[in-house]
Design a protein around this nucleic acid. Structure first.
Length: 721
DNA sequence: ACCAGGACAATTTTT
DNA sequence: TTGTCCTGGT
């Protein structure tokens, strides 16, 4: 039943997964680099070509846009046809599609808008202000976070028991108001897309029947990353006559903090009986040493669904370990290694620098600029999240739909045109009283405003209407181009003195070309402009048209998941950085270890691990210990690089709290990190860091009442408590 | 409306 | 250290 080409491209286990009978559920535990995506796409191909299922009746869900795009591409190649309207996408984009198709049944207006994280933040902020919740006590971010967490668990405001916790109580109150606000304004946030599409099917038997019948096969990628609502979403769509095919790897679950439930992968065995479980353990990506080292690290986690990855390729090079003195030295060394690789004939794009947190990218960037090496940073501010792009998109949105209040608020006075807060407040009040949108309300209250404000507002309304009029027959990119000019945005940003490099102007130009390259699905329930607006919100990366120049790839380990590179530098392997400081408890530590595992297994041929002994964090230098993960790698896989400034980088102290203590207490003997001390003037405090030794040893102490200070231990006269 | 300067916070990951 | 937010001055 398997086509010859399939036999060529797939190993035995992969073939077995792909050609599983169509009437079973399946869970494929696919280790890193074992050809997970290949299995998924071939499975679809098999169902379509060998089993005669219709492509449009197959649902394939991924977690990220990147993965979705990749799958679409590969599928299109394999099936030799365009993707068209196939149901392949992220949970969020597929949910969005369901809601756009059945807005009324979902209790939404057909013009509902998606709320991105920034917009959500603003709304939460405003609601907190209006309702007297002190944002210094309850940071807006935390309240926003709380709300999203609840929604990801499918919890509604009134279901929250907040009796004993003031934060929860206040947050739940805001949550409730927020939900009402969204409902009243036809806004749906990310989590809301999932919740609402779930409810849509749950509360509508005939629709549910329809989709259960339609989707005869449901394939889920990265199953270990699904959260509660996503799991329920899948479970709801699953019926007697259709089947699921899930691919995942518990060792690569790195989104627990975002509500991903690693248990789902175990739960699936009970909830979707009968189910076939297949393990893919042959790794095609990495050399033996890299694989063995990675396996050794991940073996330290408890409660794994044991897999043992193996490879046919040889041992390859040893894994390099470099101990830099400072983060600058670390960057310089790594960049010089990149240069070496390049001189040996590697493309720059074959080299990746992976770090735990985005903040670490800066030093590498500086170093790369110094040496004039092209690089690309992933993450950080994404294209569609940039202020100038959001401004432009707000014009696009308001012109497309004048009832888009979020867009209205953003641009009513931008670029500034003399419409002040007072006027806006009047518009808001009128809108609430008359159940109207801000744009219509503006028209209604024109006569009641003072002449100045009235004129300005009238000019704005006329501007929007005139642009709308002039651009309605233009193509999407011409439309956006025209909007940029007429709104004066292009002019405004061209003259922006704070933007010396002119990158804002460039970004606006980039937006036009992004629009040019946007290809709209034919037969979609929304028009081209609306499709582009949704894309901007749902996939804010704006990646599609990135020039494929040859450049070094810089990204967090998280965003490297699913990728592979011949040469990988995994940097900043220090305690409190990787594993990160706030992940010290056992569960979180396991996730950090998985993250490290993910990072290491990105490497195909060459892997370099590095750490710095001293690092600047928020303008202060801290001594750091090598990451415990380094110690988890057997020494025979490692090659310690000689540091010319440092002598030989010996395998330094094992991670061990008592050693840590010893380091702090060298010579002066009695101080250790975490020690509570008393100072004659500053009172009680805790030692948080130390520097130097002997008489010159300095201690950083966090005092209860006086904040954090550096003191020289021999003068400070500290009393140990 | 705009700017400069100061206080202050934040440092994990993202659909 | 860096960036953001707010204030108060013009």
């Amino acid at each position: 039943m398997i086509s010859p080409s399939m036999a060529d491209e797939l190993n035995e286990k992969q073939q077995q997964s792909v050609a599983l009978n169509e009437d079973v559920n399946a869970l494929v535990l696919a280790g890193a680099g074992s050809g997970k995506t290949r299995v998924l796409t071939h499975r679809i191909h098999y169902l379509v070509s060998a089993k005669n299922f219709h492509v449009d009746d197959i649902l394939a869900v991924t977690f990220t846009n990147k993965a979705a795009n990749e799958m679409k591409e590969r599928l299109s190649e394999l099936l030799r046809r365009p993707i068209g309207r196939m149901w392949v996408g992220t949970f969020h984009s597929l949910s969005h599609r369901l809601l756009r198709t059945h807005p009324v049944e979902a209790n939404l207006s057909p013009t509902f808008q998606i709320l991105d994280a920034q917009d959500q933040f603003r709304i939460v902020k405003r609601l907190m202000k209006e309702n007297g919740v002190d944002e210094t006590k309850f940071p807006i971010k935390q309240v926003q976070w709380f709300i999203n967490q609840q929604k990801d668990e499918g919890i509604l405001p009134h279901q929250i028991n907040a009796e004993h916790n003031y934060f929860v109580k206040q947050s739940a109150k805001i949550f409730d108001l927020y939900e009402k606000h969204c409902q009243a304004n036809d806004l749906v946030d990310f989590a809301g897309l999932l919740v609402k599409s779930y409810d849509l099917l749950k509360n509508n038997q005939s629709l549910l029947d329809h989709y259960q019948k339609k989707f005869c096969h449901i394939l889920v990628d990265e199953f270990q990353d699904t959260n509660l609502i996503q799991y329920q979403w899948i479970k709801l769509l699953h019926a007697q006559h259709n089947h699921i095919f899930c691919v995942g790897d518990d060792d690569q679950s790195i989104y627990g903090w975002r509500g991903a439930r690693i248990e789902n992968i175990q739960k699936i065995e009970n909830d979707f009986k009968p189910i076939e479980i297949i393990k893919l353990e042959q790794n095609y990506r990495s050399t033996g040493n890299i694989l063995s080292a990675s396996n050794a690290v991940i073996a330290n986690n408890q409660n794994r669904l044991e897999k043992s990855l193996w490879t046919k390729s040889g041992d390859g090079e040893l894994i390099n370990v470099f101990n830099a003195r400072t983060e600058t030295e670390e960057a310089q060394y790594i960049v010089s290694e990149v240069e070496d690789q390049f001189n040996q004939g590697r493309n720059l794009s074959e080299c990746a620098i992976l770090y735990r947190s985005n903040a670490q990218s800066r030093v590498f960037e500086e170093s790369l600029i110094n040496r004039n090496i092209a690089y690309r940073i992933y993450g950080g501010l994404r294209f569609f999240e940039r202020a100038e792009i959001k401004d432009a998109m707000s014009y696009v949105r308001l012109i497309e739909d004048t009832s888009d209040n979020i867009a209205f608020e953003r641009i009513v006075n931008f670029p500034t045109r003399g419409i002040g807060l007072t006027t806006v407040e009047k518009i808001r009040t009128y809108a609430i009283e008359h159940h109207s949108d801000l744009f219509q309300s503006s028209i209604s209250i024109l006569d009641t405003l003072p002449a100045r404000a009235s004129n300005s507002l009238k000019a704005f309304i006329d501007l929007i209407e005139s642009i709308k009029d002039k651009t309605q027959h233009l193509s999407l990119s011409e439309k956006i181009d025209s909007i940029l000019l007429q709104s004066n945005l292009m002019n405004h940003y061209s003259n922006d003195k704070t933007d010396k490099a002119g990158s804002k102007k460039e970004n606006l130009e980039e937006l036009v070309s992004a629009a040019k390259q946007y290809n709209h699905e034919e037969g979609s329930e929304i028009n081209e402009t609306q499709g582009f607006i949704a894309l901007a919100t749902l996939d804010s990366s704006g990646d599609s048209n990135q020039s494929n120049q040859d450049c070094v790839q810089l990204m967090t380990v998280h965003s490297a998941k699913g990728l592979e590179f011949p040469v990988v530098f995994l940097v900043g392997l220090e305690e409190d950085l990787f594993p990160s400081r706030q992940s010290k408890d056992e569960q979180k530590l396991d996730e950090e270890r998985r993250l490290c595992y993910v990072g290491m297994t990105r490497a195909m041929n060459t892997l370099t691990l590095s750490y710095a002994s001293k690092r600047f964090i928020h303008g202060q230098s801290f001594y750091s210990m090598p990451s415990r993960f380094l110690d988890e790698i057997p020494i025979n896989y490692l090659n310690y690089i000689k540091n010319s400034n440092n002598g030989i980088s010996t395998k330094s102290r094992k991670y061990d709290p008592s050693q840590y203590t010893k380091m702090a207490s060298t010579d002066s003997s009695m101080y250790s990190i975490g020690q509570v001390v008393k100072h004659a003037k500053f009172g009680l405090g805790t030692v948080v860091n130390c520097e130097g030794s002997g008489d010159s040893m300095r201690l950083q102490i966090k005092f209860k009442k006086f904040g954090t200070k550096w003191l020289i231990s021999s003068y400070a006269n500290l009393e140990i408590v």
